[in-house]
Amino acid sequence: MTQGQLDRLKRAMWVLSLSILAIPFVFPFLWMVSSGFKSATEIFGQPSLVPRIWRWTNFVEVFEYQPFAQQYFNSLYIAGLVTVLTLILSSLAGYALARMRFAGAGLLMLFLVSALMVPEEVTIIPNFFLMRWLGLMDTHGPLVLLPVFGPHGVMATFLMRQYFVALPKELEEAGRMDGLSRLGIWWKIALPMSRPALAAVAIITFLFSWNLFLEPLVFISSLEKFTLPLALANFTDAYGLPLWHLQLAATSLAVVPILIVYLIAQRQIIESFAMSGVKG
């Protein structure tokens, strides 16, 4: 066998083995979408990736079954709001921790870092009573406040700090010469230079909020205030049985747009997760 043949064989093996490994990663998505088009009876019939009859009406029924459009919008605007707030707060705090020398900084860091390790399940019970006291039960308030100020917000702060630390000092000094305040430097110099970090925080935060489940489960009770994950889990008939065809149609509607965005911006998105993970 020549070297060329050997290389081609190696490559074929590489492609083949990765393709086999990829099956359980791709298959659920394909099956989800295809089953979303099937009828309740066909879904458990002979397995076939292509529905015998394409039931487009499933996708109409999804919206009739519960206020799905409203729930979709809820998830979008909450994730948007959480993202914007997290960006502002984490970059402010991250900037101070990275570029300013102040008494108590070290202690503060240690204090904050401890939060990264504490699961939400530990604090959710007292937060339930806190939110009740604040009159925020069955509102979107907890779904904004807890991600922004909880461990996720701290993680974002550290990510921003990590990036700010590496920025060259000279630019800030130039800014100070021009008479900029600290806030001005943060806004006009530090932030524009930190686009990759901001993008990373934005991406991870958006997805974090978008996929949040425990908090909505505990704090939201009205159908029209549900977020998507809650809504998806709620496709059961009046007696608690899954309505698989509708559930899978709705799940497709929730997942496919995110997947499309992911496919377009996969490099950026994967890098964002890499940035947030490495520092852990």
Binding site: M131, G135, M137, S221, S222, L223, N234
Partner: peptide
């Protein structure tokens, strides 16, 4: 009339009763 899905009815109802609403 407010609809709470049957599967979560008791839980959500208890939350509303305990949650000051």
């Amino acid at each position: 009339f407010e609809t709470i899905p049957a599967g979560d009815y008791v839980q959500k109802l208890t939350f509303q009763l305990a949650g000051g609403n």
